Amino acid sequence: MMRMWEDSMRLIPIAVLLAATPALAAELPQPVRDLVEAAAQTGDKAKIDVVVALAKQTNKGAEAEIDKIVADITAARAAERESKLAEAGYFDNWKGRGQLGASHSTGNSEISSVTFGLNLQREGLAWRHRLDAVVDVTNNRKGNDQERILTGYQLDYKFSDRVYSWGRFEYERNREAGIKRRFAESAGLGWRAIQQGPLKWDLEAGPALRQTLFKTYTENSFAGRGASRLALRLSDATQFTNDTAIFVDDAATINNTAALTSKMFGALGTRISYNLGWEEDPPAGLKRLDTTTRVTLVYDF
């Protein structure tokens, strides 16, 4: 009896030690670690989520290690990106797209044109620059000219990943719609309403000034401007975009462009777009609605 008591007393410290020692985490196999690291290096949230979910499902007990791998790589990538942006000069980090093709307009004119386009964007640590321009030009044998220019420069200050302030300057010329020239200056706040996987959607609103020289009169006005900028990546090679701008004063002006862009090879691709321009109060004798369909080759740089 005494011996059994002594044996029991010897086992107590061992039992206490086992109870106080947590279960060892499962060791993450090297091939799985390599796969998680490769996914994290892409920065693609959708791809990371899929790989992480599969790795956790097949490696029970290594969940914390998997999360740490992703967190460490994400933090290192963010720090490296911020460092590069902070050191970049004004002429660094510009990306863009040029386009050349043909367009067909209906409304105040039914005519085919040559189209030129340019889009540039520069992302800084706190500032973002956008420059966009599209020009349609026709000069046929009957002397029926069409010249349409719509260009804008926008400067954003990013308060966070989703909230920013913006200032924008625009110039427009549309002879067939009776607009000899139009300037617009606007500013306000912007919000990235959706930033998830392949979908991004920005919304903007603020006050604006407009100076318009029509064919027969001049109009200066204070207006409100709202804008929507949506981009949806349908696949690695195809993207759908829809950009809308609305000016509202005594009358409204709406400009909307929906486009489908597809890569062919390298930096070269194709773009099909449909533009709708609506003037609530056009000059006498002119229609409110103009539409333009464009088919262009695009080059990303």
Rank of each mutant, 00 (worst) to 15 (best):
M2Q: 13
W5H: 07
D7K: 07
M9C: 04
R10W: 04
L11D: 15
I12H: 07
P13H: 03
I14F: 11
A15M: 15
V16M: 14
A20K: 06
T21I: 12
P22D: 13
A23I: 14
A25H: 02
L28F: 05
P29T: 06
Q30C: 02
Q30G: 05
R33Y: 11
D34I: 07
D34P: 01
L35K: 11
L35S: 14
V36A: 07
A39C: 11
A39V: 09
Q41E: 15
Q41H: 14
Q41S: 14
G43T: 12
K47P: 00
K47S: 10
I48F: 02
I48L: 05
V50Q: 13
V50I: 11
A53W: 02
G61Y: 10
A62W: 05
A64T: 15
V70R: 00
A71I: 04
D72R: 11
A76M: 06
A78P: 01
L85M: 11
G89N: 11
Y90S: 03
Y90V: 08
L100G: 08
A102S: 08
H104N: 11
S105N: 10
I111T: 12
L118A: 15
N119K: 07
Q121I: 03
R122I: 09
G124V: 10
L125Q: 13
L125T: 00
L125S: 07
W127Q: 05
R128T: 10
R128P: 00
H129P: 02
L131N: 04
V134K: 11
V134E: 12
T138D: 12
N140I: 02
N144L: 10
Q146H: 14
R148M: 01
G152K: 08
Q154E: 15
Q154H: 01
Y157H: 15
D161V: 01
E170R: 12
A177S: 15
R181F: 03
F183R: 04
A184R: 13
S186E: 09
G190I: 02
R192L: 09
Q195P: 01
Q195R: 11
W201E: 02
E204M: 07
A208H: 05
Q211T: 06
T216R: 13
Y217A: 09
N220K: 12
N220D: 15
S221C: 04
S228N: 11
R229P: 00
A231V: 12
R233N: 14
L234E: 04
D236H: 08
D243Q: 07
V248Q: 13
N255C: 00
I272Y: 07
Y274I: 02
N275A: 10
G277W: 00
W278M: 08
E280L: 08
L286Y: 11
T291Y: 08
T292Q: 07
R294H: 11
T296N: 12
T296R: 01
L297I: 13
L297Y: 06
V298R: 01
D300W: 03
F301G: 02
